[in-house]
Amino acid sequence: MKYSINLFGYNVDCELKLAGESLGIEITDENQKALKQYLVRVLPKYGREASSESSFQTLLELAIDAEKTLDGRMVEPKLKLPYEFQPEIKEKLIEAAALQDMSATQLLIRIIEKKYQEVIG
Results as ranks from 00 to 15, higher is better:
residue 1 M to G: 14
residue 2 K to S: 11
residue 3 Y to V: 14
residue 7 L to V: 10
residue 9 G to M: 02
residue 9 G to T: 01
residue 11 N to K: 14
residue 11 N to M: 05
residue 12 V to W: 04
residue 12 V to P: 03
residue 12 V to L: 12
residue 13 D to V: 12
residue 14 C to L: 10
residue 15 E to S: 09
residue 15 E to H: 09
residue 16 L to G: 09
residue 16 L to P: 01
residue 17 K to R: 15
residue 17 K to T: 15
residue 18 L to V: 08
residue 19 A to G: 08
residue 19 A to L: 10
residue 20 G to W: 03
residue 20 G to F: 04
residue 21 E to N: 11
residue 22 S to K: 02
residue 22 S to C: 02
residue 23 L to E: 06
residue 23 L to Q: 06
residue 24 G to S: 15
residue 27 I to H: 03
residue 29 D to H: 14
residue 29 D to M: 08
residue 29 D to S: 13
residue 29 D to F: 13
residue 29 D to W: 07
residue 30 E to H: 13
residue 31 N to Y: 09
residue 34 A to F: 05
residue 34 A to V: 11
residue 35 L to V: 15
residue 36 K to A: 10
residue 36 K to W: 04
residue 36 K to S: 11
residue 37 Q to C: 14
residue 38 Y to T: 04
residue 38 Y to L: 07
residue 39 L to R: 00
residue 41 R to Q: 12
residue 42 V to L: 09
residue 42 V to G: 01
residue 43 L to F: 06
residue 46 Y to D: 02
residue 47 G to Q: 02
residue 48 R to I: 07
residue 49 E to T: 14
residue 49 E to D: 13
residue 49 E to W: 10
residue 50 A to S: 09
residue 50 A to Y: 02
residue 53 E to H: 14
residue 53 E to Q: 13
residue 54 S to P: 02
residue 55 S to V: 08
residue 57 Q to S: 11
residue 57 Q to D: 07
residue 58 T to S: 10
residue 59 L to I: 08
residue 59 L to P: 00
residue 62 L to S: 03
residue 62 L to E: 01
residue 62 L to R: 02
residue 63 A to S: 06
residue 63 A to D: 00
residue 63 A to P: 00
residue 63 A to G: 02
residue 64 I to R: 03
residue 64 I to C: 01
residue 65 D to E: 00
residue 65 D to A: 06
residue 67 E to T: 05
residue 67 E to V: 09
residue 68 K to C: 07
residue 68 K to V: 06
residue 69 T to L: 03
residue 69 T to S: 02
residue 70 L to V: 06
residue 70 L to S: 07
residue 71 D to Q: 12
residue 72 G to H: 03
residue 73 R to C: 14
residue 74 M to Y: 02
residue 74 M to G: 04
residue 76 E to T: 03
residue 76 E to S: 09
residue 76 E to H: 03
residue 76 E to Q: 06
residue 77 P to H: 01
residue 77 P to L: 06
residue 78 K to S: 05
residue 78 K to G: 01
residue 78 K to R: 03
residue 79 L to G: 05
residue 80 K to D: 10
residue 81 L to Q: 10
residue 82 P to S: 08
residue 82 P to I: 11
residue 82 P to T: 07
residue 84 E to G: 11
residue 84 E to M: 13
residue 85 F to R: 06
residue 85 F to C: 13
residue 87 P to W: 05
residue 87 P to Q: 13
residue 87 P to H: 08
residue 89 I to A: 15
residue 95 E to F: 11
residue 95 E to H: 12
residue 97 A to S: 10
residue 98 A to P: 01
residue 99 L to N: 15
residue 99 L to E: 12
residue 101 D to W: 12
residue 103 S to M: 07
residue 103 S to Q: 05
residue 104 A to K: 03
residue 105 T to V: 14
residue 105 T to Q: 05
residue 105 T to D: 08
residue 107 L to W: 04
residue 107 L to N: 00
residue 108 L to E: 05
residue 108 L to R: 04
residue 109 I to H: 01
residue 109 I to E: 00
residue 110 R to A: 04
residue 110 R to K: 10
residue 111 I to C: 06
residue 112 I to N: 07
residue 115 K to R: 11
residue 115 K to L: 14
residue 117 Q to K: 10
residue 118 E to V: 12
residue 120 I to T: 07
residue 120 I to E: 03
residue 121 G to V: 11
residue 121 G to P: 01
residue 121 G to C: 11
